[in-house]
Design a protein around this nucleic acid. Structure first.
Lengths: 223, 223
DNA sequence: AAGCACTGTGGAAGAATTGTGGAAGTCGCT
DNA sequence: AGCGACTTCCACAATTCTTCCACAGTGCTT
């Protein structure tokens, strides 16, 4: 079954060019020209990767990217930007794109990036067996059968981190993911919960640090 | 046997300048001033790369590009455009150009692009497979699977350099690209980060120098 | 060869970020 | 209301990172 790539690009010529190159590589390719059509399309079709222009009619690539990432954590997203200045680490992290391509680019370069991102996605999707079990029904997290005794927020935090091992989350991303309502909370609050989580994990399984800090960026789960 | 570059440029001064710079780099260089002479010349001589101005007497660069690509699929073509005009770029891409340079440019930039395109052509792939993987989601850079352990700024710096292999960046350009906020920082600070980057890359892959200094100009990434 | 300009390097100062204990506030329950 | 569990925030300590400096080394020019 071929992997499915969705190209979102308002410039007809470029969209066609990308479609042809990607199709030639054996991908199933769909093309949309407006930003506001993307989310519905992704919901309806099994898309593996979205090639997303930053400037789009209907809805900006930034908004689309954010929405896609929120709805589909496993979806690969490559942003296409007109200028290299637009790419900064915080913006990229907040939006959750997997890679960037700056114009002007060669179609071959795009194909190479698409391949690389999909390869990474395939590798990363194999869930590592770390013995951690998350039980949504009872809000219980356990390691090796031993309950961690987490509170609701701690459980939520661990769940978000654990869903994508190795991915780094900023504090703001974690806050957004933990609270459905748009609650305003100091980002240092995350640190407090991280502290408690670490302590409870340590109590059950001493010596193994699974939550890592990345200076200036955020936190990640890694076994 | 030196690689053969054909410069097609109607402006005498610019043509001469390019000829000199390229010759100094060890390329065999030919110069033509009219678009309608190019195809015959390429048929008769073993040209590896054509540096092609868009605006030419006799026959436009776009037409020439199209004809060349049809006749010689393996030939590398770099288009030179007067304006940062998206339409021209896309047209050119569709016609099969490998890269673009927009005026005004520095001769050194041209040389760098020529080198990069020829290197890619030799390897037969647009993607330079240097084993370096930049993972925005995980904020990690790794070579051959081994994490480099970069800080945020180091990652950003490497990413900028690596995005355009062969392109030379001045210290100021690198500072602009690394900091979104208009931070004021000594340009020698870049040197410090370069030093750390080199050390970390060296630790993972000894003996391969990928970050090069260009005396009086700046730094570039090249495998 | 000498002089100048630029780059490499170790390390110190201090700027920024994270860890931590605990106080204050909130919420639900009896 | 009173209690306990939980959440949030604060202040200070500990850690990590960035920046810059001074000097050594190297490349370029005359």
């Amino acid at each position: 079954m071929p992997e499915h790539v969705l190209v979102v690009e308002d410039e007809e010529k470029l969209a066609g060019l990308l479609r042809d190159y990607l199709a030639q590589e054996g991908y199933a390719v769909s093309v949309l020209h407006r930003g506001d059509e993307v989310e519905d399309f992704v919901r309806a079709s099994p898309v593996d990767l979205v090639l997303l222009d930053l400037m789009l009619p209907g809805k900006s690539g930034l908004e689309v990217c954010k929405a896609l990432r929120a709805a589909s954590p496993q979806l690969s997203i490559i942003m296409v930007t007109a200028r290299v200045d637009e790419v900064d680490r915080l913006l990229g992290l907040e939006l959750g794109a997997d890679d960037y391509i700056c114009k002007p680019f060669s179609p071959r370069e795009v194909v190479a990036r698409v391949k690389a991102v999909l390869r990474r996605a395939r590798r990363g999707s194999a869930a590592p067996d770390d013995g951690l079990v998350l039980d949504d029904a009872g809000f219980k997290a356990s390691i090796g059968g031993r309950d961690l005794g987490l509170t609701a927020i701690e459980y939520q935090l661990l769940k978000v981190l654990h869903a994508q091992p190795g991915r780094i989350f900023t504090r703001d991303q974690l806050i957004d993911a933990m609270y459905r309502d748009e609650r305003v909370v100091s980002d240092r609050t995350v640190d407090s919960h991280i502290k408690k989580l670490r302590r409870k994990i340590e109590a059950v399984q001493p010596g193994r640090e699974v939550i890592h800090s990345l200076y200036g960026v955020g936190y990640k789960y890694e076994w």
